[in-house]
Nucleic acid binder design. Structure first.
Length: 158
DNA sequence: CGTTAAGCTTGAA
DNA sequence: TTCAAGCTTAACG
């Protein structure tokens, strides 16, 4: 997992089996970002703010049912930010359809656009786009792999 | 069931 | 500004 942040808060959380791909994804979104390898996340004394946030993300991964509340720096169009905001209202273990979210933010009929906002969600997990499923109950897609989406949901329901 | 067309936002041309 | 494309969906054959 890769966690990135600005002074305002976490601006990106991404999953991938290959670190290089995470770095590439990171650079393509935030050119000129500064990198650091993880490691000190469990050492309170040396925790910088970033380490604290990284720790929060790791905690969220370890305890799927527990709601985490880290400051987020969401960069995107007004519509997307509204969607992401709505996604955060979905509690762990729960889910909604793309159409639900659209209606919920006053854009009934914009289901496909909501899907686009999910696809462009830079903050995985913390902005729970994995809790959005198709109306017919199917998983729908997931930028980081449908299997990963399935696992996240199962862990939250367990 | 598979297929289709409508519908909304985006990013690229 | 125009346009194709997408983690959809309801309607149809």
């Amino acid at each position: 997992v890769l966690v990135a942040a600005t002074d305002a808060g976490v601006c990106m959380v991404a999953f991938d089996d290959a670190d290089e791909r995470l770095v590439v994804a990171m650079r393509s979104r935030f050119a000129g970002a500064v990198f650091a390898a993880a490691g000190a996340a469990d050492d309170p004394a040396r925790m910088s703010r970033l380490d604290t946030w990284v720790g929060g993300v790791l905690h969220a991964i370890a305890h799927p049912r527990q709601a985490v509340d880290l400051p987020l720096d969401m960069r995107g169009s007004g519509f997307r930010k509204t969607v992401w905001q709505a996604l955060r209202m979905i509690p762990p273990g729960d889910s909604a359809s793309y159409g639900d979210i659209a209606a919920r933010i006053g854009h009934a009929g914009a289901a496909r656009a909501v899907a686009g906002a999910c696809a462009g969600n830079p903050i995985a997990l913390l902005v729970p786009c994995h809790r959005v499923l198709r109306r017919d109950g199917e998983l729908g897609g997931f930028r980081w792999g449908v299997d990963r989406k399935r696992v996240l949901l199962e862990r939250e329901r367990a």
